[in-house]
Simulated assay, not measured.
Amino acid sequence: MKQFARIQQGASVIPILVSGTELLDLRSLIPDITPEAIASGVLNEFDVASLKPITGEVQYLAPIHGVRQVPATGFNYKKHIQELKVPTPTEPEVFLKSQYCLTGPFDPIRRGPNPDVKLDWEVELAIVIGREAQDIKAEDAVDYIFGYVCLNDVSDRATQVDAERQHHLVRAKSRPTYGPIGPYLTTGIDPMNVDLWTKVNGNYEQQGNTSDMIFPVYEMLAYFSRHMRMVPGDILATGTPPGVGMGKNRFLAVGDILECGISNLGAQRHEIIG
């Protein structure tokens, strides 16, 4: 397992390897963690001993810069289906979040100017594509994955469903700051046995495990590859476990503190602002 991240120190953006308590500078290998750096294969194998540690105060950024696509799915956890009382899907849902919604793991989330916003949380395991994927098989999917990040699929439920009960997922999930990712981009984990959680103001709202998925990670990636071309650095969000605000009719307000995390991928913390 390797944990990559991007940090800012002063005016410098620094790609790093997190090794225990040390932050190791990757700038001798790559200028930044980008789709191009992932595609190059440089991060697949390198001499850790040659990397220099970074000291001092740092700020964590989104762990990938320049993401091109954010495909996503919903209704992929059995217990989430139960809490929303909706039919179990027979195939994955396919939609996209705007890449411009992505933000860092500790940045504020802006609620937006609409007073009717119903701001909700959705912690999700997201696949980071490592090589071009189209029409691949589930048994080969692992070879197309570079790693995984924690993504909070922030959603405005007021604009997600219209008066005729039609769903509009792209518009509900694509405003700036509605896609925090990080802090770590982690490789070499079993994606089907990781814990996910969300807290609002210190209280647990979501607790789940990817073993509850209806469509497992490799099957999900193969399915998406049959409908779209994915390239290195793309992020595929795989759905959320139970405990979302929509299931409780309880939503985020200005001043709330939203936290979420996934095993080995780190934890996020955000203040909700107007």
Results as ranks from 00 to 15, higher is better:
Tyr204Met: 09
Asp140Ser: 13
Asn193Thr: 12
Asp143His: 08
Arg131Gly: 03
Thr177Tyr: 13
Glu139Met: 05
Gln134Val: 12
Asp143Glu: 15
Leu151Asp: 07
Gly188Lys: 01
Gly179Tyr: 05
Met192Ala: 09
Ile127Ser: 07
Thr159Met: 13
Leu196Trp: 15
Asp140His: 09
Gly208Tyr: 09
Val161Glu: 09
Asp156Phe: 00
Met213Asn: 11
Gly208Glu: 10
Asn209Arg: 08
Lys199Glu: 12
Tyr144Asn: 10
Asp107Pro: 01
Tyr184Gly: 04
Thr210Leu: 04
Ala138Pro: 01
Ile129His: 06
Thr187Trp: 03
Ala141Phe: 07
Asn152Thr: 09
Cys150Glu: 00
Lys173Leu: 01
Lys173Gly: 02
Ile136Asp: 10
Asp153His: 00
Val194Leu: 13
Asn114Val: 07
Ile127Lys: 09
Lys173Met: 01
Val149Leu: 06
Val217Glu: 03
Thr210Phe: 06
Leu151Tyr: 15
Pro105Cys: 04
Ser174Gln: 08
Ala141Leu: 12
Pro183Asp: 04
Ala172Thr: 00
Val154Ser: 09
Thr210Asp: 05
Pro113Met: 01
Arg131Cys: 09
Asp153Ser: 04
Glu219Leu: 10
Gly202Met: 06
Lys137Ile: 00
Gly112Arg: 03
Asp116Glu: 08
Met213Val: 13
Arg131Met: 11
Tyr184Arg: 07
Ile129Tyr: 08
Ser174Asn: 12
Ala141Arg: 07
Gly208Val: 14
Gly112Lys: 06
Val128Asn: 05
Lys173Phe: 00
Leu151Gln: 14
Phe106Gly: 06
Tyr184Trp: 12
Asp190Gln: 08
Pro115Cys: 13
Glu122Thr: 04
Gly202Gln: 10
Tyr144Leu: 06
Phe146Cys: 03
Ile145Val: 13
Tyr148Gln: 08
Gln166Val: 14
Pro180Tyr: 05
Pro183Arg: 09
Ile127Glu: 07
Tyr144Ser: 08
Arg175Met: 11
Ile214Gly: 10
Asp212Pro: 14
Gly179Leu: 02
Arg131Asp: 09
Leu196Thr: 10
His167Asn: 12
Val170Asn: 02
Asp156Ile: 00
Ile214Ser: 08
Ala163Phe: 12
Val161Gly: 03
Val142Lys: 15
Lys173Cys: 00
Val194Trp: 02
Met192Pro: 09
Val170Gln: 04
Ile127Ala: 09
Gln134Phe: 10
Asp120Ile: 00
Met192Gly: 12
Leu196Arg: 12
Ile145Pro: 01
Asp116Cys: 03
Ala133Thr: 11
Val117Ala: 10
Lys118Met: 10
Asp135Lys: 15
Leu196Ala: 04
Pro183Tyr: 13
Val128Gly: 02
Asp162Tyr: 07
Gln206Phe: 11
Trp121Met: 02
Glu205Phe: 14
Thr177Arg: 11
Asp153Gln: 02
Asp120Phe: 00
Lys199Gln: 14
Glu124Ser: 05
Ala133Val: 11
Arg131Tyr: 07
Tyr204Phe: 15
Val117Gly: 10
Ile136Gly: 03
Tyr144Lys: 01
